[in-house]
Protein backbone atom coordinates (compact mmCIF):
# COMPACT_ATOMS: atom_id res chain seq x y z
CA UNK A 1 0.00 0.00 0.00
CA UNK A 2 2.77 2.42 0.92
CA UNK A 3 4.35 1.71 -2.46
CA UNK A 4 1.16 2.83 -4.21
CA UNK A 5 1.08 6.02 -2.15
CA UNK A 6 4.74 6.66 -2.95
CA UNK A 7 4.12 6.22 -6.68
CA UNK A 8 1.02 8.42 -6.60
CA UNK A 9 2.63 11.28 -4.67
CA UNK A 10 5.83 10.99 -6.65
CA UNK A 11 4.06 11.40 -10.00
CA UNK A 12 1.45 13.89 -8.83
CA UNK A 13 3.69 16.34 -7.02
CA UNK A 14 7.40 15.51 -6.79
CA UNK A 15 7.97 14.50 -10.40
CA UNK A 16 5.08 16.56 -11.67
CA UNK A 17 4.57 16.12 -15.40
CA UNK A 18 4.43 19.79 -16.27
CA UNK A 19 6.67 21.58 -13.82
CA UNK A 20 9.38 18.98 -13.19
CA UNK A 21 9.41 16.66 -16.20
CA UNK A 22 8.40 19.43 -18.66
CA UNK A 23 5.89 17.26 -20.53
CA UNK A 24 2.63 18.54 -21.99
CA UNK A 25 3.82 22.14 -22.00
CA UNK A 26 1.92 23.37 -25.06
CA UNK A 27 -1.42 22.43 -23.55
CA UNK A 28 -0.23 23.92 -20.25
CA UNK A 29 0.00 27.37 -21.84
CA UNK A 30 -2.79 26.85 -24.34
CA UNK A 31 -5.55 25.73 -22.01
CA UNK A 32 -4.69 27.54 -18.76
CA UNK A 33 -6.52 30.76 -19.60
CA UNK A 34 -9.86 29.84 -18.10
CA UNK A 35 -10.59 27.75 -15.01
CA UNK A 36 -13.46 25.83 -16.64
CA UNK A 37 -11.27 24.87 -19.62
CA UNK A 38 -8.49 23.79 -17.29
CA UNK A 39 -10.89 21.52 -15.40
CA UNK A 40 -12.10 19.87 -18.62
CA UNK A 41 -8.57 19.40 -19.86
CA UNK A 42 -7.36 17.95 -16.54
CA UNK A 43 -10.28 15.55 -16.45
CA UNK A 44 -9.73 14.41 -20.03
CA UNK A 45 -5.97 13.92 -19.55
CA UNK A 46 -6.51 11.87 -16.39
CA UNK A 47 -9.05 9.62 -18.09
CA UNK A 48 -6.93 9.06 -21.19
CA UNK A 49 -3.82 8.46 -19.10
CA UNK A 50 -5.50 5.71 -17.07
CA UNK A 51 -7.02 4.01 -20.14
CA UNK A 52 -3.73 4.28 -22.04
CA UNK A 53 -1.73 2.92 -19.09
CA UNK A 54 -3.91 -0.21 -18.87
CA UNK A 55 -3.94 -0.96 -22.59
CA UNK A 56 -0.27 -0.26 -23.20
CA UNK A 57 0.65 -2.41 -20.19
CA UNK A 58 -1.31 -5.29 -21.71
CA UNK A 59 0.30 -4.82 -25.12
CA UNK A 60 3.75 -4.39 -23.63
CA UNK A 61 3.54 -7.58 -21.58
CA UNK A 62 1.63 -9.77 -24.04
CA UNK A 63 3.23 -8.73 -27.33
CA UNK A 64 6.35 -6.60 -27.05
CA UNK A 65 8.24 -8.40 -24.26
CA UNK A 66 7.55 -12.01 -25.42
CA UNK A 67 8.72 -11.13 -28.94
CA UNK A 68 11.66 -9.12 -27.66
CA UNK A 69 10.74 -5.93 -29.50
CA UNK A 70 10.55 -3.49 -26.60
CA UNK A 71 12.54 -0.95 -28.60
CA UNK A 72 9.45 -0.49 -30.76
CA UNK A 73 7.39 0.71 -27.80
CA UNK A 74 7.33 4.42 -28.75
CA UNK A 75 5.79 3.92 -32.19
CA UNK A 76 3.36 1.26 -30.99
CA UNK A 77 2.28 3.30 -27.96
CA UNK A 78 1.59 6.35 -30.14
CA UNK A 79 -0.55 4.18 -32.42
CA UNK A 80 -2.41 2.65 -29.48
CA UNK A 81 -3.06 5.93 -27.68
CA UNK A 82 -4.30 7.67 -30.82
CA UNK A 83 -6.80 4.96 -31.64
CA UNK A 84 -7.82 4.53 -27.99
CA UNK A 85 -8.78 8.18 -27.72
CA UNK A 86 -10.84 7.82 -30.89
CA UNK A 87 -12.68 4.83 -29.43
CA UNK A 88 -13.34 6.54 -26.09
CA UNK A 89 -14.54 9.68 -27.85
CA UNK A 90 -16.85 7.71 -30.13
CA UNK A 91 -18.34 5.86 -27.18
CA UNK A 92 -18.85 8.93 -24.97
CA UNK A 93 -20.27 10.97 -27.84
CA UNK A 94 -23.06 8.47 -28.43
CA UNK A 95 -23.92 7.49 -24.90
CA UNK A 96 -23.47 10.52 -22.66
CA UNK A 97 -23.63 13.96 -24.18
CA UNK A 98 -23.20 15.73 -20.83
CA UNK A 99 -19.88 14.03 -20.23
CA UNK A 100 -18.87 14.68 -23.83
CA UNK A 101 -19.59 18.36 -23.43
CA UNK A 102 -17.59 18.42 -20.18
CA UNK A 103 -14.55 17.06 -22.03
CA UNK A 104 -15.26 19.33 -24.96
CA UNK A 105 -12.68 19.60 -27.70
CA UNK A 106 -9.88 18.51 -25.37
CA UNK A 107 -10.48 14.78 -25.68
CA UNK A 108 -9.46 14.59 -29.38
CA UNK A 109 -6.73 17.17 -28.83
CA UNK A 110 -4.82 15.08 -26.30
CA UNK A 111 -4.37 12.24 -28.80
CA UNK A 112 -0.89 13.61 -29.37
CA UNK A 113 -0.22 15.00 -25.89
CA UNK A 114 3.28 13.99 -24.83
CA UNK A 115 2.26 13.69 -21.17
CA UNK A 116 0.05 10.74 -22.10
CA UNK A 117 2.81 9.09 -24.11
CA UNK A 118 5.17 9.92 -21.24
CA UNK A 119 3.18 8.01 -18.63
CA UNK A 120 3.11 4.86 -20.79
CA UNK A 121 6.86 5.02 -21.44
CA UNK A 122 7.59 5.65 -17.73
CA UNK A 123 5.43 2.66 -16.82
CA UNK A 124 7.33 0.51 -19.31
CA UNK A 125 10.80 1.63 -18.23
CA UNK A 126 10.06 1.35 -14.48
CA UNK A 127 8.61 -2.16 -14.93
CA UNK A 128 5.46 -1.33 -13.02
CA UNK A 129 2.80 -4.00 -12.48
CA UNK A 130 -0.66 -3.29 -13.88
CA UNK A 131 -1.97 -1.96 -10.55
CA UNK A 132 1.09 0.24 -10.14
CA UNK A 133 0.64 1.51 -13.71
CA UNK A 134 -2.93 2.56 -12.99
CA UNK A 135 -1.89 4.36 -9.80
CA UNK A 136 0.97 6.05 -11.63
CA UNK A 137 -1.38 7.18 -14.40
CA UNK A 138 -3.87 8.50 -11.85
CA UNK A 139 -1.09 10.35 -10.07
CA UNK A 140 0.22 11.81 -13.31
CA UNK A 141 -3.25 12.93 -14.39
CA UNK A 142 -4.08 14.46 -11.02
CA UNK A 143 -0.73 16.25 -10.92
CA UNK A 144 -1.33 17.60 -14.42
CA UNK A 145 -4.83 18.78 -13.47
CA UNK A 146 -3.62 20.43 -10.24
CA UNK A 147 -0.95 22.47 -12.01
CA UNK A 148 -3.34 23.43 -14.81
CA UNK A 149 -5.96 24.58 -12.30
CA UNK A 150 -3.48 26.58 -10.22
CA UNK A 151 -2.10 28.20 -13.35
CA UNK A 152 -5.52 29.09 -14.74
CA UNK A 153 -6.51 30.61 -11.39
CA UNK A 154 -3.41 32.80 -11.43
CA UNK A 155 -3.88 33.74 -15.08
CA UNK A 156 -7.50 34.74 -14.50
CA UNK A 157 -6.25 37.14 -11.82
CA UNK A 158 -3.44 38.34 -14.09
CA UNK A 159 -6.07 39.52 -16.57
CA UNK A 160 -7.07 42.16 -14.04
CA UNK A 161 -3.58 43.57 -13.67
CA UNK A 162 -1.88 46.05 -15.94
CA UNK A 163 1.59 44.78 -16.81
CA UNK A 164 3.86 46.65 -19.29
CA UNK A 165 2.73 46.14 -22.87
CA UNK A 166 5.66 43.90 -23.80
CA UNK A 167 4.86 41.57 -20.89
CA UNK A 168 1.15 41.12 -21.58
CA UNK A 169 -0.18 37.64 -22.31
CA UNK A 170 2.35 34.86 -22.73
CA UNK A 171 5.52 36.54 -21.32
CA UNK A 172 3.95 37.12 -17.95
CA UNK A 173 2.53 33.58 -18.07
CA UNK A 174 6.04 32.21 -18.63
CA UNK A 175 7.30 34.09 -15.56
CA UNK A 176 4.37 32.75 -13.52
CA UNK A 177 5.16 29.23 -14.69
CA UNK A 178 8.77 29.70 -13.61
CA UNK A 179 7.76 30.75 -10.09
CA UNK A 180 5.29 27.88 -9.94
CA UNK A 181 8.04 25.48 -11.02
CA UNK A 182 10.35 26.78 -8.30
CA UNK A 183 7.58 26.27 -5.76
CA UNK A 184 7.11 22.67 -6.91
CA UNK A 185 10.83 21.97 -6.59
CA UNK A 186 10.25 22.42 -2.86
CA UNK A 187 8.51 19.02 -2.89
CA UNK A 188 11.77 17.42 -4.04
CA UNK A 189 12.89 16.38 -0.56
CA UNK A 190 9.59 14.77 0.42
CA UNK A 191 10.36 11.12 -0.39
Amino acid sequence: MSRFITIFVSLAVINNFILVRFLGLCSFFGVSKKLSDALSMGLAVTLVMVVAAVVTWLINHSVLIPFGVEYMNIIIFILVIASLVQMVELYIKRTNMTLYNAFGIYLPLITVNCAVLGITLINASENYSIAESIVAALGGGVGYAIVLIIMSGIREKLELTDPPKSMRGLPVAFLTAMLLGLAFFGFGGMV
Partner: peptide, 17 residues
Protein backbone atom coordinates in the same frame (compact mmCIF):
# COMPACT_ATOMS: atom_id res chain seq x y z
CA UNK B 1 7.75 -10.64 -37.47
CA UNK B 2 8.47 -7.04 -36.36
CA UNK B 3 6.62 -5.78 -39.44
CA UNK B 4 3.93 -8.36 -38.77
CA UNK B 5 3.48 -7.19 -35.15
CA UNK B 6 3.16 -3.55 -36.13
CA UNK B 7 0.76 -4.34 -38.95
CA UNK B 8 -1.20 -6.70 -36.71
CA UNK B 9 -1.62 -4.14 -33.92
CA UNK B 10 -2.61 -1.48 -36.43
CA UNK B 11 -5.16 -3.72 -38.07
CA UNK B 12 -6.56 -4.87 -34.72
CA UNK B 13 -7.04 -1.26 -33.60
CA UNK B 14 -8.66 -0.29 -36.89
CA UNK B 15 -11.07 -3.21 -36.68
CA UNK B 16 -11.91 -2.35 -33.04
CA UNK B 17 -12.77 1.23 -34.01
Amino acid sequence: WIVAILTGIGLALAITI
